[in-house]
Computed example of a mutant assay.
Amino acid sequence: MTSVLYDVPGPKAILRNRVLAVVTVIVVLAIIGFFIYRLYVTGQFSAEKWYVFTFSNVWMNIFEALGNTLAAFALAAVLSLVLGFILAIGRVSDHAWVRVPVTVVTEFFRAVPVLVFMMLLYFGLPVLGIKMEPYWAVVIALMVYNGSVLAEALRAGIESLPRGQKEAGYAIGLRKSGVMRLILLPQAIRAMLPVIVAQLVVTMKDTALGFIITYPELLYYAKLLSGQQGRPILQSALVIGGIYIVMCLILAGIAKWVEVKTRHSPKMKALAADNAAVMHDGTNTELIAAQKPPKAD
């Protein structure tokens, strides 16, 4: 028996896969156990190492740093999506005078690392007499880089759609803006939603680079905590890292909820029906045009 994508494993293959799965689980648990053992042996669980986290003022500062992280992420995420849509539409333009410059700008923004952008904005602009606050340096750098990456994801989503959908939209009289807004973009967003969410998670984590330009976010405060009594370096990393993990899980959960709501939304179902009608009408138009006898000379 075979599947469409692969051969169904036989008894020996099933046994081998189960053995590999068990061995993998054992190895992972052994690594985790060894890590916990080393933490215990080196005294990382001692009260002295965690003493700094017994103060309420420390947790207030952590929540303040968390607020700074979320403030930078929220604005950078919105601006990245807006910039991504603009650049993606420019990339698929039929006009070379629009498509070529947008392509150059997008590729340039994707090639320069986020940290370099931040340092240029924060340390480089004062040389030109322009002073920029760390918050805006972080937000603009994240917007430029992640917006260009999202633009490529959206462009790929648009170009992955069947060509017949765009042609059918033109066949029933839609303008290019209508075809893009009503037919191509909604489907491209749904298709590329996992990629968009993954890039937003990257945006959230990249806010940590702001500590290099003294932006008081979570990693910046973790660095301050690591120099306190007992030097709780690993403890600060575990606490702050746990906060980042929780934020990423929440973002992924929100994205999953949006995806489910979108899939069951009456509006999206109506849009899918309209797209099917567009495809049907476009196909009929093409068939009629193909069957119509040529004019006599």
Rank of each mutant, 00 (worst) to 15 (best):
A141Y: 14
M143P: 10
K166C: 01
D94R: 10
V127G: 02
Y145H: 13
L125C: 07
S93Y: 12
P113I: 06
F73M: 04
D94N: 13
V138T: 11
L70S: 03
L79A: 12
T69F: 04
G147Y: 02
N146P: 06
R155K: 06
A141D: 02
V139W: 00
L81T: 03
L150W: 08
A141F: 10
F73Q: 02
L87Q: 13
F117E: 00
A111M: 08
V114K: 05
G169E: 14
V149H: 00
V114A: 14
T106I: 08
W97R: 04
R91Q: 15
L87H: 08
P101C: 09
I89T: 14
F73H: 02
E107T: 12
Y170H: 11
A171E: 13
W97N: 06
V144E: 01
N146M: 11
M132T: 07
A76M: 09
A77W: 07
E133M: 09
Y122F: 15
W136D: 00
F117C: 01
A71Q: 07
L70M: 08
V116N: 10
F123R: 06
K131E: 04
G84W: 11
M119S: 03
A71L: 06
G84L: 09
L142Y: 01
I140C: 06
P134C: 07
V127W: 13
L120I: 13
V105P: 05
P134S: 09
A77C: 11
V138P: 01
A88F: 05
L115C: 09
Y170T: 02
L154F: 13
A137T: 13
R155D: 00
G129Q: 06
G147M: 10
M119G: 00
S93C: 12
V104K: 13
V98S: 02
G124F: 14
M143F: 12
M118P: 09
I140L: 15
A72K: 01
Q165W: 07
L154E: 00
V127L: 12
G147A: 05
S160V: 02
F109E: 02
V78L: 14
A111L: 15
F109Q: 11
V138F: 14
V102A: 10
K166T: 05
V149S: 00
A76G: 03
I86M: 12
A111K: 15
I130S: 01
L121H: 04
V82E: 02
A71K: 11
T106F: 12
T69S: 07
Y135R: 13
V92K: 14
L125T: 14
N146Q: 08
I86R: 12
A171H: 15
V98M: 08
L121M: 13
V138L: 10
R91A: 03
A96L: 05
V112E: 06
I89P: 02
V78Q: 10
L87G: 05
V112Q: 01
L75H: 00
V105W: 14
M118R: 08
V98D: 01
A156D: 04
S160W: 01
L125F: 15
P134D: 00
F85A: 12
E152G: 05
A137C: 14
G129D: 09
F73E: 03
V105F: 15
V116E: 03
G157F: 13
L120D: 02
L120V: 15
A71P: 01
A171L: 10
